[in-house]
Design a protein around this nucleic acid. Structure first.
Lengths: 348, 348
DNA sequence: CTGAAAGCGCTAACAG
DNA sequence: CTGTTAGCGCTTTCAG
């Protein structure tokens, strides 16, 4: 049996209340007593039982995912994963909910963040493109004792908050490598198309893409990024124009997480040219296109993993633990027709 | 506040002990009483608090990973992941340990399984190639109330036990697709090499590989599988012979999870031919080769994920829950130089 | 068949 | 500064 606070109390010759105070670093304990308890902890190899503590406190972790107000299939998928994971987590006294409240406008994001209070939430996962204002607002959240993880959008290893998501530079590089490999022609142009190029994330993808394409496939050259802004008509027009102007387009990179509108336009106006398409994220539609071989490869971040990772990080920070870096690395997954998970063979 | 057993007891007009009996399906409760409690559960939307229950029971989940006695780097990696994950899980009253006890011989495996008792373990993850004997022994484990998951080695969706690992057929197909794409030459031979071909797993990988290669790259043809059996000298000899006999080898598929010996031989004797190599699993060595571009792609199952998934499944079964299929699908990940996780940028 | 009482490991409120 | 007491939600004797 693992030692308990009772054992500690006996060993240190104090009461369990005092042990508790030491364990939780609460003030008002004589230095000497603290030492004694610490010694007992080390000697007995005491490890605290977190769920007992949480039970006693009736502690509930309240986390919120703040997501963009509007978005497409990828966002819907995230939403669904959060909901599903949330159901499971209720058993662990973790309540998570998603709020689709963030707009493009940084001021609106700042205002939303400013309204969050320690009274109602213990941690938030924020999916919003970076800007100095948002960054400041986030720092203020932390000061108020609300834990934060940057979700999907943002950068690796830029403290002081945790980031969950893929490395966008590497994602772009991966796209280039795949496009080059799957594209038969050694020379030609590559169309790059996105919903919008506003965020730093897109810039990084584009950078990674260009660098790797240039390095590995000198015969291929990428066109400037086309932007569809969620508008089908506009998308159709610019894509058609691109195909008209550049007869040597041999591949397409759909750079944004929301791929539907750009893909639609490319498939409709590309005809049988541009057979090699690389896009991002797994949704019902992109998977369908992968299966029917209209898309060569998909670069995805697993929505289930990112959600679970965000929650683990938030919880770890709440408990004052340091999360395990190795476990929280989000992989840039590559999906081909061949390694799509098979249709569910059943789990009873 | 979520309703508790106390609330249930009051609502149903019984004592908490009776509520407990109903909740746990224990016998000796009048049918009428059961109904009353059930009704209260539905009415109040009661959800039991598992950790409180576990605390009261001082329940500890004891899981064991039974792994092959000998193995190389991939196995070492798994071992490490299990250990690391185990440390974290202690906080959740889950004790996992690994035992490197399984041998090639099915009888030895059967004997080992036969020795497991409900007294000492609640669930086991078994990594052993399938055979009728082992299958029987596994079924007997389940009859004795020990939960089982087939680990890494085995097949998807073949009840009655859970399987954690990749679909080997799809993995082989993925290898073929990548090899074909990254290999510049449209025609030539492909060397297929493995540590050993004994298991069903290898047969499936090979099947998937051949089918996809034939379908997608008619110019490429795969040679019969070479087997190295962990023996460097032997490996060198057969690889050298293959290169001598087939001057048109343009690619290599290293099929086994342990890739070191085969890779070594190929790199030493392939010279600058066979630039396109696809292998399995992420280890220090394979990653090094990927970085230096000696290997084109790696097909991996994430050791951390498989371990966590196995534990979640075991725990779910112990609690009588049905695991969430969607969450437990192990992805066939593709690693290129481009999407290797970056060197750790730090997590403080 | 059912209930009262004690306890799992920890925390909280209040005395002292 | 420290101890006592009660209680978190559930389980487990042991009477009845």
């Amino acid at each position: 049996m693992r030692p308990t606070t009772k054992d500690l109390a006996k060993a240190a010759g104090v009461s369990r209340a005092t042990v508790d105070r030491v364990l939780n670093g609460r003030p008002g304990v004589h230095e000497k007593t603290v030492q004694a308890v610490q010694a007992a902890i080390d000697r007995l190899g005491f490890e605290r039982n977190l769920s007992a503590a949480n039970l006693a406190k009736s502690r509930v972790y309240r986390f919120e995912f703040l997501l963009p107000r509007d978005g497409g299939e990828f966002l819907a998928e995230l939403d669904a994963q959060i909901a599903e994971h949330g159901r499971l987590l209720r058993a662990d006294s973790i309540e998570i909910r998603t709020r689709r409240v963030l707009e493009r406008n940084p001021h609106q994001v700042v205002a939303t963040l400013a309204n969050l209070s320690r009274e109602e939430v213990d941690g938030v996962a924020i999916m919003s493109s970076e800007s100095p204002q948002v960054r400041d607002a986030t720092l203020r959240l932390i000061e108020r004792g609300i834990n934060v993880v940057q979700f999907i959008s943002g950068q690796h290893g830029v403290r002081p908050f945790d980031f969950v998501g893929i490395d966008n530079y590497a994602a772009g590089a991966t796209a280039a490598r795949l496009l080059g490999a799957f594209c038969k022609q050694p020379a030609g142009r590559v169309m790059v198309i996105a919903e919008a190029m506003t965020s730093l994330d897109s810039a990084e993808r584009r950078l990674g893409f260009d660098q790797t394409l240039g390095l590995r496939f000198p015969g291929l050259s990428a066109l400037p990024t086309l932007e569809t802004h969620g508008n089908h008509t506009r998308a159709a027009a610019i894509v058609a124009a691109a195909y008209r102007n550049f007869p040597d387009i041999v591949g397409v990179y759909v750079m944004s997480s929301e791929a539907f509108v750009p893909l639609e336009a490319v498939l409709r106006h590309g005809g049988r040219r541009a057979r090699t398409i690389v896009a991002h994220e797994r949704t019902a539609r992109t998977v369908e296109l992968l299966k029917s071989e209209m898309i060569a490869a998909l670069i995805v971040q697993n929505p289930g993993h990112v959600v679970r990772s965000a929650v683990r990080l938030l919880k770890a920070r709440c408990d004052g633990r340091t999360p395990l870096a190795s476990q929280e690395d989000i992989r840039i997954e590559i999906l081909l027709k061949e390694n799509l998970a098979l249709p569910d063979k059943g789990t009873a």
